[in-house]
């Protein structure tokens, strides 16, 4: 019965072809250093899952953001766990992405034919940092308020357009409800969607060219 169902589905979806193309691929022998990319992906998924759960209670308004997070941390069952994982996952993700990049640089895996994979990887790093920056403001506490003030101030140093950029980031001249809600929207939709698209492209290129082998003497 089960095999019949599988056959029916396979005929329509091409499960077997997918299995062959995606999973049953030959690869050069890898080491534990090769797991950093998938570890980054795992952390991104964890961030997505815990982030969605945080949204269930979090309120992006200066009046309630802080209190809603206090509520998550102290009143909701396992709220401390979900927020804790999201908080530490963000830190760990930046770290793992960075180490992943170092590994790729060290083994020169960005060379022919994987140049584009590297370029997309750098964009992934930037998006991750952007997520860290925007997420930092959301708890609306002293630390986030002043860190964001400084960050937007730094963007203001851009010659000529600086003031304008700061105003765009803050949604006005000062940090306000507008800043919080635009950082929120960027953090929960714009950047995660960007990241997901870039990850798809990154993975496609990896499957297309295969994981790189460790360089030998003659390389």
């Amino acid at each position: 019965m089960a095999s019949k169902v599988f056959e029916w589905l396979d005929e329509r979806l091409g499960l077997n072809d997918m299995y062959k193309a995606l999973l049953d691929r030959p690869e050069p022998e890898g080491t534990w250093w090769n797991t950093l990319g998938s570890a980054s992906l795992f952390l991104f998924i964890m961030q997505g899952v815990t982030g969605i759960f945080l949204l269930m209670y979090y309120t992006p308004s200066p009046d309630h953001a802080y209190d809603s997070i206090q509520y998550i941390m102290n009143e909701v069952a396992f709220g401390w766990l979900i927020r804790g994982i999201h908080h530490w996952g963000a830190n760990l993700m930046v770290f793992i992405v960075f180490v992943h990049m170092l590994r790729v640089f060290t083994t020169a895996s960005y060379k022919y034919p994987r140049e584009l994979t590297w370029v997309i990887g750098v964009l992934l790093l930037l998006t991750t940092l952007g997520l860290g920056l925007t997420g930092y403001l959301l708890p609306w506490n002293q630390r986030s308020y002043f860190a964001t003030t400084v960050a937007t101030e730094i963007a203001g140093l851009v010659p000529f357009a600086g003031d304008f950029i700061t105003r765009v980031m803050r949604g006005g001249t000062d940090l306000s409800a507008l800043t919080l809600s635009r950082f929120f929207a960027t953090h929960v939709w714009v950047l995660p969607a960007t990241l997901a698209l870039l990850i798809t492209a990154h993975l496609y290129l990896i499957i297309r060219h295969g994981e790189s082998e460790y360089p030998s003497e003659e390389d």
């Binding site: 899952v49 759960f53 269930m56 009143e75 909701v76 069952a77 396992f78 766990l81 979900i82």
Partner: peptide, 15 residues
């Protein structure tokens, strides 16, 4: 490990 706490987390106000 993530699903079980999450269920408690979501149901909490109702409980």
């Amino acid at each position: 490990g993530i699903a079980l706490p999450a269920i408690g987390y979501v149901l909490d106000p109702a409980l």
